[in-house]
Design a protein around this nucleic acid. Structure first.
Lengths: 199, 199
DNA sequence: GCGCAGTCTTGTCAGTGGCTAGATTGCTCC
DNA sequence: GGAGCAATCTAGCCACTGACAAGACTGCGC
């Protein structure tokens, strides 16, 4: 699929080719099925070529995780409300299952990688941004609850534990319905006046 | 640690020895660090001995997942209320991080293994048992929301994403506080009369 | 005490990750 | 335009792993 341009010595965009091939493999069979040699074969290069870009297997997975946190941060930053951010969180997991898996598998990553920590911090900031002025006794706890709910649902969805309930629906829509009556009720309880959610 | 009893030819309890050694490795370095040969060395047997009990690597992980779902089912069955089951779910994840990881990594498992599916069904039944008579328009959705919340928090806890907030607290206590004001408010809204939660 | 099923060992093979040394290429600077 | 240089890729190697096959050992039931 992502073979080299010609019979040139240099691939041209090996780094990206390896990344996308890795995402395909992970989405299909999980991170355990990753083989640097297989990725090299798919890209049509020698078995040691990927190592130059990522160092080792852990480096590759760390790069994927960093990219994932960057994408997540972008997705969340475009959100307009807490509910909207929840939808986007679930949507992100559904769109980027390979990234999502790797991002939350710390055993596979180099924890102190600067790119990774930077991207993770950015995503964390986007996550906390919508929680600051939240009602309730402890906004941070409310934020963690919201994060837990979205993360848990996304994980259960990706691991096929809620297939029956979700059916063919886009998962973020089911998630929206899931949280809808709950947050509506909460909001109604907290303050009767509120700009209506327009789902 | 779990070496064989004597210099007998038979180990005596190799299956259990391999299982516990595997759980140690997974808890420390994740399922990717598992090596059947390493487990054999730890148990003091030849490199191919574990294969007799589990078939292959996937078989070992499937056995771990099945054991995990069994333990989870037991833990949930002893729960007295939805909130209590949530606490127990989080407690289970904290007590059995290796099981928890493997249980929700379908790529590592043999999906149609009878022991696995039986244990999973049993855990699912225990999970749904406390949701049947729940308030709200869609009890199943409420159950999934509760499951998502507990599962998400447990996952975030195990992946060190909420260390700052939880601190040295037992995670299920933080989780309890997290959901306390939410469920209390919900219950108060739904029906004013209710047997008080006695945390 | 004999056979047999279960358990473990030994030997082997292909595949993998990571390392080192060297070949090739494109870019920069004079 | 060409010489040097750093980035990129290749080739070869070693230790390790999972999986398989064939055989050795053991304890249990008959």
């Amino acid at each position: 699929m992502t073979s080299r341009n010609r019979n040139t010595y240099h691939h041209g965009d090996l780094r990206q080719a390896v990344l996308t091939a890795a995402l395909e493999v992970i989405a299909a069979d999980g991170p355990g099925a990753l083989s640097l040699r297989d990725l090299a074969r798919r890209a049509g290069v020698s078995h040691a070529a990927p190592a130059h870009h990522f160092g080792d297997r852990t480096g590759l997975l760390t790069a994927i995780a960093a990219q994932g946190f960057g994408l997540l941060a972008d997705a969340l930053a475009a959100g307009t409300s807490l509910a909207d951010r929840g939808r986007r969180y679930v949507r992100f997991a559904a769109d980027h299952p390979a990234h999502f898996q790797v991002m939350f598998a710390p055993a596979l990553l180099r924890p102190d990688d600067p790119d990774l920590t930077a991207a993770r911090d950015r995503a964390g900031a986007a996550l906390r941004a919508g929680v600051a002025g939240l009602p309730g006794p402890d906004p941070r706890a409310t934020g963690i609850a919201a994060w837990s709910l979205a993360h848990g649902f996304a994980t259960l969805y990706l691991t096929h534990n809620v297939d029956d309930a979700v059916g063919a629906l886009p998962p973020e829509e089911y998630f929206d319905a899931l949280t809808g009556f709950l947050t509506e009720r909460t909001e109604r309880t907290e303050r009767t006046e509120r700009t209506g959610r327009e789902r």
